[in-house]
C-alpha cells in the first residue's frame, strides 16, 4: 500500500509551478514532527533507564544510589511470590487480549460503515460502557456479581479474573479498530464481491489485511491495560491469584523493595529480545 502511495508523489512538476513544492519535496514530511517523535521516545525510555540502573543498586532504598550489585536479581530468583505473580499477570493479559481483540474486531465490523440502524447508538454505548465507569465501581459491582454466581454454582477459578479483564479490554481494542475501519474505503471489498468472492473470502483476503494495523494497535492496548490493572484485580482475584500489580500495591504501604525494579528489567529485556527476534525473523523470510 505505502509503496503505491510513494509512487504517486514522484511525478515532477514544471519549474514554473508556484506550488511550494520544490524538487525533492516530500509531501509526507512535516517539519518538527520527527523531532517530537524522537523526543517522545526519549522521554518514554528515560524512566526505563532509571529502572534498569536502580535494579543493580545495592541499597535497599529505591531512591539512593550506593553501589553495583546483583543482589535484587538473586532475591527475585528466590522469591516465588513475585515469579508466580508475573506469570499469572502474563497469562491473564494474553488470554484477555486475544478474546477481547477477536470480539472487538467482530463488533467493529458490524458497527462501522453501515447506515445508521436502530439500536446502533445503544450497541455503541454498550461496547464502551466499561470505559465510562471508574475502576473502583466496576470492581465493587463485579465483585458482588461474581460472589452471587460463586455461591449459586460453586465454581471458582481464574476464569472470573480473566472474564473481568476481558470486559474492560474490549473497548480499548475496539477503538483503534473502529477508527481504522471508519476511514477504510469500500471499493476494494466491493471489487472483491463483484468478482464473486464469498463474503468470508472477501473478509480474509481483503478486509482483514487492510484492518490488520488497527487490530494490532487494539491488541497492544488491550494487553497493556490488562497488565496495568490494579483496582479491579484487587477485588476480583481469588486466593493464589495475585497478579503483579496486586503484589506491588500490597507492598506500597509498607515499603517497596528494588526487587520490583529487577523484575521489570527482566521483563523489559525479554520483551525487547522477543521483538528483535521477530523483526530479524521477518527480515530473513523476505
Amino acid at each position: 500500500m505505502a509503496d503505491a502511495v510513494t509512487q504517486v508523489d514522484t511525478p515532477v512538476r514544471g519549474a514554473s509551478s508556484p506550488s511550494p513544492k520544490g524538487r525533492g519535496f516530500d509531501v509526507k514530511r512535516l517539519p518538527g514532527f520527527a523531532t517530537v517523535a524522537w523526543m517522545c521516545l526519549l522521554v518514554l525510555y528515560a524512566p526505563m533507564l532509571v529502572l534498569v540502573l536502580f535494579s543493580v543498586n545495592d541499597n535497599r532504598s529505591v531512591t539512593i544510589w550506593t553501589k553495583f550489585s546483583w543482589r535484587w536479581y538473586e532475591e527475585v530468583i528466590n522469591n516465588e511470590g513475585i515469579q508466580h505473580a508475573t506469570v499469572l499477570s502474563l497469562k491473564v493479559a494474553v488470554v484477555a487480549m486475544v478474546v477481547a481483540t477477536a470480539v472487538a474486531t467482530m463488533a467493529a465490523l458490524a458497527t462501522t460503515r453501515t447506515r445508521a440502524y436502530r439500536g446502533l447508538p445503544v450497541v455503541y454505548g454498550i461496547i464502551n460502557q466499561p470505559l465510562m465507569v471508574p475502576e473502583i465501581v466496576t470492581a465493587v459491582a463485579t465483585l458482588s456479581f461474581f460472589a452471587l454466581i460463586k455461591q449459586a454454582t460453586g465454581v471458582t477459578g481464574l476464569g472470573y479474573l480473566i472474564l473481568a479483564h476481558t470486559v474492560f479490554c474490549i473497548p480499548f481494542a475496539y477503538m483503534p479498530i473502529r477508527a481504522r475501519l471508519e476511514d477504510m474505503d469500500l471499493t476494494l471489498e466491493q471489487a472483491s464481491a463483484d468478482l464473486y468472492a464469498t463474503p468470508w473470502r472477501t473478509f480474509r483476503r481483503v478486509t482483514f489485511p487492510l484492518l490488520l494495523p488497527g487490530i494490532f494497535a487494539g491488541a497492544m492496548l488491550a494487553f497493556v491495560i490488562s497488565l496495568d490493572d490494579v483496582v479491579i484485580s484487587l477485588l476480583v482475584a481469588g486466593p493464589g491469584e495475585s497478579t503483579l500489580p496486586i503484589y506491588i500495591i500490597g507492598q506500597l504501604r509498607r515499603g517497596v523493595t528494588p526487587e520490583m525494579n529487577a523484575v521489570s528489567t527482566i521483563f523489559l529485556a525479554v520483551s525487547i529480545l522477543l521483538v528483535t527476534f521477530f523483526f530479524v525473523l521477518a527480515r530473513a523470510r523476505k
Binding site: 518514554l44 524512566p47 490494579v230
Partner: peptide
C-alpha cells in the same frame, strides 16, 4: 512505543518520581 508500557504503571510511576 509500547514496550515501556508493558512495565507496570506503578513501577513506571516510581521511576518518574526518581
Amino acid at each position: 512505543v509500547t514496550i515501556p508500557f508493558w512495565t507496570n504503571l506503578l513501577i513506571r510511576t516510581f521511576a518518574i518520581m526518581l
